[in-house]
Amino acid sequence: MQLLDRSFDVSTTPVAGATLSLEAIRGVEQFLFREARLLDERKFAEWLALWTEDGRYWVPRFHDQANPFEQISLFWEDKMLREVRVRRVENARNWSQQPLTRSAHLVGNITIEGLDAAGHLIVRSTLQLTEWRIDQRQLAGSVFHKLAATEDGGWKIVLKRVNLVNCDDVFANLEVFI
């Protein structure tokens, strides 16, 4: 199973520095803003296209969780599972999405952290997320993106790790991506 591939590098500690032009930094920031906006607008097909083939989406269950292989995770999803989630929330008989989950992501404090062993760019940001479905809730945390440069000068997501401040809390269902 791809999800159990322990060779996947989930580390978000840089092994080398990254020197980006101001224009390139602006490009990274715009990429993160756009990613968040696609989730808020429920443009899931476009959101799925932001990822590399083997990209992983991870929301740890524990603070400072070392990896998703020895412990449970709030989300640990590869391409297949991200697609299944989108198919489910878009199914006409998605009883628990009537009404739909609505969200507003506020992405800030973006810093370029450096490069991982494979040369992916590590970017850290802070997330404030308001979600509404019958009840309103507030989610917040730090987000690490590992990004791969594309040939046309853009970015694709290799890893998105969301460290929720309340990852060890009691939760109502988390139906859509954070």
Partner: peptide
């Protein structure tokens, strides 16, 4: 992770 997590794709329809 897939069935019993709060992010389960199966459980929310039960809970609803």
């Amino acid at each position: 992770n897939l069935i019993n997590s709060p992010s389960s794709n199966v459980m929310p329809d039960d809970v609803e």
